[in-house]
Amino acid sequence: MATTLTPPDSDQTSVPPAKLPPGLETNAEKAESRRGFLIGLPAYAYLVLFFALPLAIVVVYSFATRSTTGLTVLADWNLQSYARLTDSLVVAITWRSLWIATLTTVVSLVVAYPFAYYIATRTPRVRAALLVLVMIPFWSNFLVRTFAWRLLLSSDGPVTRILETLGFANPRLLFTPSAVIIGLVYGYLPFMILPLYASLERMDHSLVEAARDLYATGWEAFRKVTWPLSKPGVIAGSILVFIPSFGAFVTPEVLGGTGTTMLGSYIGRQFVGTASDWPFGAALSVAILFVMMLAAMFYFRSGGKDL
């Protein structure tokens, strides 16, 4: 047996290397990685062309100078635009953006959690149907949907009417910070529901039963079992809602009025406005990007330890 088997074995293992030039294996590996690179090339090219390069241009512009007529002069590189980031106006708008984004995230979480839990505990068929319902709003344009809220929240719109019947005197919703938060929660709710659903669906529900068997109350079972297990979804959902809310542009422009200027609108005004201060707008964007990156890194790390 051994003798009959050995020759073919040795043929396969020892003979081919002897016939082939040295370094073939490394060549094969190289070829393999080259193929991998070629397959990934369109994606790399796309990212470099449409993400890295524009971002680099934004960074370069942030050190440029605004001419008296509002032209961006790519010379006399300076930090002047960054010096303006500590202006009281910028600080005030940043704080407003922060609290609007935070409130949006909290409200989204409170609304989305029970719903995601509900979806996760349905039968697969109902689940699929509910998930489709969650995603249906994405089939129409965000701007159009935001304008629809304008009708809903207007002074003779249904929401205001209901509030009036409930006894609120002269309720004004449209063009207030509340309207902006309602619009943002509406817009980004699916981003909260989907990751929450993913982590709740993956959860082993017999763990909750076990907790109840061990005399945990419903609340205790939630706090000690369900909540910790759904935390990755909570963190992912919160980031997905907070970051776009913080930089929101469309919603505050359409639904906001007095006292609702957010960073997105202020940055927009640097580009399409009489100020025409592209370097400052770029500096604002770079600063936000930097802060967001730091916050996300911190959030992921601190969250990661608990998981």
Partner: peptide, 8 residues
């Protein structure tokens, strides 16, 4: 340059 002042 006053355009910046107007805007802010």
């Amino acid at each position: 340059d006053a355009e910046i002042l107007f805007t802010d």
